[in-house]
């Protein structure tokens, strides 16, 4: 499978990365080089093999339902949450107006 300019443009749009025509042209052979190379995996016989789910066999721990049990993962820190925002107003994050 190899990608063409239209595919790369679609992928870039899905990934929300603006690319110019020129960049697009340059990317196509680069990405094809990488994709063609990774396609060697297709030759591995994986019959009956499960995809890896946990690199070190382990299962999910669940936490107790307690609000702000750890201040590092709790709420009530609006100033900290907004501290780095490019546009914060009245306690909100501002973004260009969205028309739904």
């Amino acid at each position: 499978m190899s990608v063409d300019t239209a595919t790369v443009a679609r992928i870039a749009s899905l990934a929300r990365i603006k690319v110019s025509e020129g960049e697009l042209e340059a990317m196509v052979p680069e990405l094809n080089g990488i994709l063609n190379w990774v396609e060697q995996l297709g030759e591995v016989n994986v019959e009956g093999v499960e995809p890896m789910t946990a690199v070190i066999p382990n299962t999910l721990r669940l936490r107790a339902d307690v609000v702000n049990a750890d201040p590092l993962t709790g709420g009530g820190i609006r100033d900290a949450v907004l501290a780095n925002a490019p546009a914060a107003e009245h306690g909100f994050f501002g973004v260009p107006k969205v028309i739904e």
Partner: peptide, 16 residues
């Protein structure tokens, strides 16, 4: 761990 209560001040129930 942030709270789920309805009607709180904007972004007051938001963790990192």
């Amino acid at each position: 761990g942030s709270a789920t209560a309805f009607g709180a001040e904007p972004n007051s129930q938001v963790s990192l």
